[in-house]
Design a protein around this nucleic acid. Structure first.
Length: 722
RNA sequence: GCCAACAUAGCUCAGCUGGUAGAGCAACGCUUUCGUAAAGCGUGGGUCGUCGGUUCAAUUCCGACUGUUGGCUCCA
C-alpha cells in the first residue's frame, strides 16, 4: 500500500511473474521485496549483504537479500555482482557457521530431514528444511541442546573443492539430493564447487566459516516459519528455523534486550496505549479507525504539508472514493491488478438483468473484464502497440460495467486535467489531494498501520512539459526532504529506480528516458544523502525515487515516492498546446511525500516512541493542581490555553501529586504544569517537561509564549533525560 | 493466500491432568487535600473470540470459522 502505489499499471497484460525465474541458474536468486529476518534495531547497517549462503556457489545467490523493503510498486534486489561469498565479516562467519551447526543438530534429531539452504542474515541466520514432522517449540529446545553439544565437540570446519561429478556423488551419499542437486545446478560452469564439513555433517557451501565450532560463543534459536522453496509460492513450503548468533554472550543478551525494547516502541502497542487508532474486527481487517487523539496527529501533518504545497503552487482537489470500471480499463489497472483490488460494485439493475440471464460467476467476471472492440482499437492506437489483446473484447451488449473502490487517485486527477484545454503557459499543473484508496492486500500481509486495506495518500499529480520534468522532480524531492527534516527523520535510504538497459519492456522513447533518468539522478544528488541506483527497478513507464525507512523490528517500508510517468498521458490521450501551436503530450509526475498517512503515522509513532513534538502531540499540556484548592486556578489557565489553540487538559482526579504526574508521564504529555498555592498566587506555573523533568517555576504568560513558539516552529523534542 | 503460534475484564496476565473464573492496573464511589513517576477502603465489570462436536459436565479436549503475531508469497 502506500505511497508507492500511486503508480500506474503496465500498458500490456503481462505474465504473472515478470521477473527472471528464480530457478535460472544465472539469476541473482529469488527476488524479494522484504527482508528475510527479524532485526531488532532500526539502525542496523544497510550495506548490501556481502555473504553467500550455504549450498550455493558464490555467484548464485539463492537466498534473500535482507536489504530490501516491502514496498508497493517496486521489487528490487541486490545485484549479484555486489555479493561476494568470499568476503564474510567475522560476525557473518559466526552466523553462517551456526547455521551449519543447526543443520548438524537437525540431522541428528531428525535424520530424514532434507536440507535446502542456510545463510546468515542481517541479524542472524536461518536454515530451510523439508521435514514431515511439524516442528514445535519443544523441538527447537531439543535442537538447541544438540547444537550446544556440537559446539562443545569443537568440530573443525574444513573446505573441500570438488568436481561437479564428485559433488553429485557426495550429495547422493549423504541423501540430500532433493534440494542440494538443484542448488548445485545453480553454480555456473567454471565456478569452483566447494563443500564444508564439520564433524559428520557436510554441506555444499561457498563459505566462509569459522575454524572451529567452539568459536560460536553465543547463539539462540528464535522462531519457526514457513518459507517457500526458492521463494516461489508454487514450490513446496519448507520449515525455516531462524536464529541469531554473536561473538559473545553479552552481545547476544544486548541484542535480545534491544528486541524487547523495540517492542515497547511498536506503533501497534503505542497506538493502543495512547489511544491513537483502533482496528475493529467488525469494520474489517486493515481498515483504520482514527480516534480523536490519532486524528490530531494526522490532521497536524496534513495542515503542515498543505502549507508547503501552497508555497509550491499546488492546487487542492477532491475526488470520490469510487470510479467506473471503464476508467480503470483506460488507465490499464483493470483487470490486470484485480487480485489486489476490492471486487467491483455492480449496480442492482445490471445484477438483476444478468441474474435473469442465468449468468454464472465466471461469466460475470469475464464480462466485467472485457472491453468493446472500438475501445480496444482506440487504446491500442493511442499506445502505438497492441496493449489490449483481441481476446479481451466482447460484443457491446454483453459488457458489464461497475464501479471500483479506487486503488489509486491518478485517473480521477487526470480527468480533472483533461476537462479543459491547456496551454503550455498553464504548465505545470499540480493537482493535490489527500486521496483515500483501497487495496485488497492479502490477509497475511496486513500489519498495524503500515500495511492496510484502506489508506490515504498525500497524493498529487503534476502535468508538465518534458523540459519541466527535472525541475518538478526537484520540487517534489524538496517536499519530501522538508517533511523528513521537520520530523527529524534521518534514518532512511533513497533508491533511484532506473530502467534495465537489456530490456525493452519500457514505454516511451530512449530520449525521454535518458532525460528522465538524468533528472532523477541529478535530483537525488541534491538531497545530500547517499542513494542507490538500481537498474531494472524503474517502473515500466518511467524512473522513480523512493524513500525507504525501517520500523522497530527492522522491516523496511517505502514512504515517500516520486515517479515519472509517460504512460498514462498516452492512454488518456492528454495534450496541451505548445508555443508552436501544435498539440503536445504532457508528462506526469506522481508523488507522495508521506506516502500514505497511515503508514507514515505508524512509522512516525515508532520514530518518536510516542513522545511527539509539541506541535503533533494530541495533548500538549496537562494541568495538575496539587489539590482541589487550586482547581479553579487550573480551570482559568485551561480556558486561556484553549482560547489560544493549545490542546490542554486539567487533571481533576482526587489523587496525590505523584500519582497525577505519573499519569501524565505515562500518557507522554510533553508539558505538565503543577499548580499549587504559590503558583496561583503569582499567576505562575511549575513546569515539568517530558524531556527534562522539573524545570522550575515560570510566569504563566512566559510559558504560554514559549509553548506557542515551539508549536509555531515545529520544534523537535529535546533528547530525553536518561 | 501459505506455514506456525496465540485469543480469559478496558490493559497486562494467572487459572495443574475437564466440575461454568481470579490478580494488578484502569473505571466508579467514599475517605484523604496532598509539591514532581503509583494514598487508603470499597463497588461495578467477563455468555473465557464465534459456531459446532465429544462428555453427566468444556475456558480446559477435538473441528471449522474469525482475528492477531512472526515468517513466506504478493504489493499497480
Amino acid at each position: 500500500m502506500l505511497s508507492a502505489s500511486i503508480s500506474t499499471p503496465p500498458p500490456l497484460p503481462r505474465p504473472r511473474s515478470p521477473l527472471p525465474s528464480p530457478h535460472s541458474p544465472h539469476s541473482a536468486g529469488p527476488r524479494r521485496t522484504r527482508r528475510t529476518s527479524p532485526s531488532p534495531t532500526a539502525s542496523a547497517p544497510r550495506s548490501p549483504q556481502p555473504a553467500g549462503p550455504c549450498s550455493t556457489a558464490r555467484t548464485a545467490i539463492p537466498w534473500n537479500p535482507p536489504n530490501v523493503s516491502r514496498t508497493l510498486n517496486s521489487r528490487f534486489s541486490i545485484p549479484a555482482s555486489s555479493i561476494n561469498a568470499m568476503s564474510m565479516t567475522p560476525l557473518e562467519e559466526i552466523r553462517h557457521s551456526c547455521s551449519h551447526v543447526l543443520a548438524t543438530a537437525i540431522l541428528r534429531v531428525f535424520p530424514d530431514a532434507k536440507l535446502d539452504i542456510g545463510p546468515p542474515t542481517e541479524s542472524g541466520f536461518y536454515y530451510d528444511i523439508d521435514l514431515e514432522h511439524k516442528l514445535t517449540q519443544e523441538d527447537l529446545a531439543r535442537i538447541e541442546a544438540e547444537m550446544k553439544k556440537v559446539i562443545e565437540e569443537n568440530q573443525a570446519f574444513t573446505r573441500k573443492e570438488v568436481s561437479r561429478e564428485e559433488a553429485v556423488e557426495i550429495i547422493k551419499k549423504v541423501g540430500q539430493e532433493r534440494y542440494k542437486l538443484g542448488r548445485l545446478d545453480d553454480i555456473p560452469q567454471g565456478e569452483a564447487i566447494s563443500f564444508y564439513q564439520n564433524g559428520e555433517f557436510i554441506d555444499l557451501c561457498a563459505g566462509t566459516h569459522v575454524r572451529y565450532t567452539k568459536q560460536i560463543k553465543a547463539f539462540k534459536l528464535l522462531s519457526i516459519a514457513g518459507a517457500y522453496h526458492r521463494g516461489d509460492e508454487h514450490n513446496k513450503q519448507l520449515q525455516r528455523i531462524y536464529g541469531t548468533a554473536f561473538a559473545s554472550k553479552d552481545e547476544l543478551a544486548q541484542h535480545l534486550e534491544r528486541m524487547e525494547q523495540a517492542k515497547l516502541r511498536d506503533h501497534r502497542k503505542l497506538g493502543r496505549d495512547l489511544k491513537l487508532f483502533v482496528i475493529d474486527e467488525d469494520v474489517g481487517q486493515g481498515l483504520i479507525l482514527w480516534t480523536p487523539a490519532g486524528s490530531i496527529i494526522r490532521q497536524e501533518l496534513q495542515t503542515f504539508i498543505l502549507a508547503e504545497l501552497q508555497k509550491q503552487g499546488y492546487s487542492q482537489v477532491f475526488t470520490p472514493h469510487i470510479g467506473k470500471l471503464a476508467l480503470y480499463k483506460t488507465s490499464g489497472h483493470f483487470p490486470y491488478y484485480k487480485e489486489s483490488q476490492f471486487t467491483p460494485l455492480v449496480d442492482p439493475d445490471q445484477l438483476a438483468r444478468i441474474a435473469g440471464e442465468g449468468c454464472s460467476c465466471a461469466d460475470m467476471t469475464a464480462r466485467l473484464d472485457a472491453v468493446s472492440e472500438s475501445f480496444r482499437q482506440e487504446i491500442n492506437r493511442r499506445s502505438g502497440r497492441e496493449v489490449i489483446p483481441v481476446e479481451r473484447t466482447k460484443a457491446d451488449e454483453s459488457l458489464l460495467d461497475g464501479f471500483l473502490l479506487k486503488p489509486m487517485n491518478c485517473p480521477h486527477h487526470i480527468k480533472i486535467f483533461a476537462s479543459q484545454p491547456h496551454s503550455y503557459r498553464d504548465l505545470p499543473i499540480r493537482l493535490a489531494e489527500f486521496g483515500t484508496v483501497y487495496r485488497w492486500e492479502q490477509s497475511g500481509e496486513l500489519n498495524g498501520l503500515t500495511r492496510v486495506r484502506g489508506f490515504t495518500q498525500d497524493d498529487a499529480h503534476l502535468f508538465c512539459t518534458e523540459e519541466q520534468v527535472g525541475q518538478e522532480v526537484l520540487g517534489c524531492l524538496s517536499l519530501v526532504k522538508i517533511v523528513l527534516s521537520t520530523l527529524g527523520m534521518s534514518d532512511y535510504r533513497v533508491r533511484v529506480g532506473l530502467r534495465d538497459p537489456d530490456s525493452n519492456k519500457y514505454t516511451g522513447t530512449k530520449e525521454n528516458w535518458d532525460k528522465a533518468e538524468a533528472a532523477c539522478r541529478e535530483a537525488a544528488k541534491t538531497l545530500g544523502v547517499s542513494f542507490t541506483e538500481e537498474p531494472g527497478e524503474a517502473a515500466f513507464y518511467g524512473p522513480k525515487i523512493d524513500f525507504v525507512v525501517r520500523d522497530v523490528i527492522g522491516r523496511e517500508w517505502q514512504l515517500g515516492t516520486v515517479q515519472v510517468d509517460y504512460n498514462l498521458p498516452i492512454r488518456f490521450d492528454l495534450s496541451y498546446i505548445g508555443a508552436d501551436n501544435q498539440q503536445h503530450r504532457p508528462v506526469m509526475i506522481h508523488r507522495a511525500p508521506f506516502g500514505s498517512m497511515e503508514r507514515f503515522c505508524g512509522v512516525l509513532i515508532e520514530h518518536f516512541g510516542g513522545d511527539f513534538p509539541v506541535w503533533l502531540a494530541p495533548e500538549q499540556v496537562r494541568l495538575v493542581p496539587i489539590s482541589e484548592k487550586t482547581l479553579d486556578y487550573g480551570r482559568g489557565l485551561l480556558d486561556q490555553f484553549r482560547a489560544s489553540g493549545v490542546r490542554a487538559t486539567l487533571d481533576e482526579h482526587n489523587d496525590k501529586l505523584g500519582a497525577k504526574i505519573r499519569r501524565a508521564e505515562v500518557d507522554k504529555v510533553p508539558y505538565t504544569l503543577i499548580l499549587g498555592g504559590k503558583e496561583a498566587e503569582a499567576q505562575a506555573v511549575s513546569v515539568r517537561s517530558r524531556a527534562k523533568g522539573d524545570e522550575g517555576v515560570l510566569p504563566f504568560a512566559a510559558f504560554h509564549e514559549r509553548l506557542l513558539g515551539e508549536v509555531r516552529n515545529r520544534s523537535l523534542p529535546d533528547k530525553k533525560k536518561a
